[in-house]
Design a protein around this nucleic acid. Sequence first.
DNA 1: AAATATAGGGTAATCGTTAACCCAAATTAG
DNA 2: CTAATTTGGGTTAACGATTACCCTATATTT
Lengths: 332, 332
Amino acid sequence: MAISLSDIAERAGVSVKTVSGALHGGSARMSDDTRQKVKAIAEELGYVTNLAARGVRQGWLPLVGVVSDGLITSPFATEIVRGLDGAARSAGMAVFAVNHSSGQSIGSVVDEVQQFRPRAVAYAAMYHKDIDLPPTLAGSVGVMINCREASGRVTSLVPDEEGGAREIVRYLLASGRRRIAFINLPGILAGALREKGFRAALEEAGIEPIGVLPAVRRSVYSDRAPSLVASHVETLLATGQRPDAILCGNDRVAMEVYAALARAGLKIPDDIAVASFDNQVELASRLDPPLTTMALPHRAMGRLAMEILLAGEPEPPHLRKLPFHLVERASV
Amino acid sequence: MAISLSDIAERAGVSVKTVSGALHGGSARMSDDTRQKVKAIAEELGYVTNLAARGVRQGWLPLVGVVSDGLITSPFATEIVRGLDGAARSAGMAVFAVNHSSGQSIGSVVDEVQQFRPRAVAYAAMYHKDIDLPPTLAGSVGVMINCREASGRVTSLVPDEEGGAREIVRYLLASGRRRIAFINLPGILAGALREKGFRAALEEAGIEPIGVLPAVRRSVYSDRAPSLVASHVETLLATGQRPDAILCGNDRVAMEVYAALARAGLKIPDDIAVASFDNQVELASRLDPPLTTMALPHRAMGRLAMEILLAGEPEPPHLRKLPFHLVERASV
DNA sequence: AAATATAGGGTAATCGTTAACCCAAATTAG
DNA sequence: CTAATTTGGGTTAACGATTACCCTATATTT
């Protein structure tokens, strides 16, 4: 078994509480002499705090549980966790992430996490969606990240899809583009909201969109679904009203657009501008030319979530939309 | 405060130990009647096991700590974690992942994890590298994942880079290719080992490589470094010995090769085959044609690591190389 | 019918840490 | 010079779960 306070106490010839005070109680009344001696012995013996024991006493462990739905495969997930982690560290907390596979109910996973008596629990969705949290869990889950909680009982943090789409469209307009098409991700919440922003921004400029087209068939967005991108691009180029900008649902769609435009012999951005959403850096910066894209506020959501979780007085539940961030590269 | 065993005991009119036996001690002597009654009350009160309390008694929490170096951004990291997680769950353990940012020493992060009294601790590197673990940690870290531990005091699990390269070259040879070039990732361990495998496989077939070229300048591999891929491809195509296959250091290099070949008007795989390492699915399956690539054994490393950590009798420390896995798509 | 098992469950110690309280010596205030 | 305060540190009781040990009925054996 590992070294405990009483081992140190015995060696130092003091009581356990003195050791505890010397090592952990910053303001405990005690001579500097004693404190130094105890610390030295602790160091020598290789003492490591037993947080489980402290946890029993305090009623909680210095953990913040994060339950995420399904795939943590995406780089987005890690950005959320980074945001959470950074804020957690500065509060002396660790992030304890558990993903719930499709087999389990949210409730059972939350319970699993609760067994560790975390200070707080957040729920994080891997893509922007609606989630209906079971009423029983409204008390134990403090923040919903990247999803809208239906009942409104829990504060939800989501990307401002509509605003992000407006911003990139305005940017395209500011660069002089007027004939703008949108190859969107169908069947997902982000797609629907972005389309609203896309249309709103064009309307406020008094411009008609060239087309809003789905990247895959059947209104079902999936990485496996066969892509329609190439044929859409060909169609768009064939019309008399050839677009001078194509906005893409994500960087991978943009990658396909690049390929289709290359086949058609068109130069980016001179003949046609390309922009998208996601800022998947490895992809976007490697494309030729590097891709201008709207970065999602994943890290910001993570950071804000942690601040909300650890804040003393909780705000009343509400939906908070966080802004996208334009990453200018050379494709516009 | 949450419900405890004694709350249930009081309500049920039995002792705490009976409640403990009923809920957790599968084989405790007890009438079925009592057991059912206790379980019902626990359910009703919404009892959740306090693992911290149990942890104090047992000396450890049902956790396996995983310390990873720096960036958890890569999809590889999550594959490792998935492997660990799957194996951990079936043993009733949870994975507690902590990444150590560049500021901290490995030791301090391991200590941070040890405070939670995990059952075992693993170290995971985000890309295949050599790591020199401080001697003090050889006792606390049970397995090194995706890295070779210099001193040999700890079992290390790494991808069989050499074997993987041999396999993909043999595959290219089997498909009839004879003039094979390799645009490799310079400056990293994986690159060096793969080159050995690449050369070995060609030699055993009595064939000379067309060229082994670095994807970026200066032998420093980084996602930011300016790419040399396009010019290399142009050079390769300009020679009389035009290659009929290009092996790429990773899928992103392959993506650039695709673009360069498209510009040159060459068809994949008819004019020239392309293959690579990584199997970054979102990319590889989206390229046109979909990319044939060697998948790294990340999940397998994670799973095996957990099995080693949780095994009763530990094997003596050794270096274990896990095989790559060929993902056949249409680019060869 | 007496001796022995066994089922069913209680008591109390234990894990490592913290914290409310106490006490003696030393210092300061008046 | 005495009373009040501070300093330094010890005692002891929690926290929640587990477990070795013990006791009392009832069931089984001889």
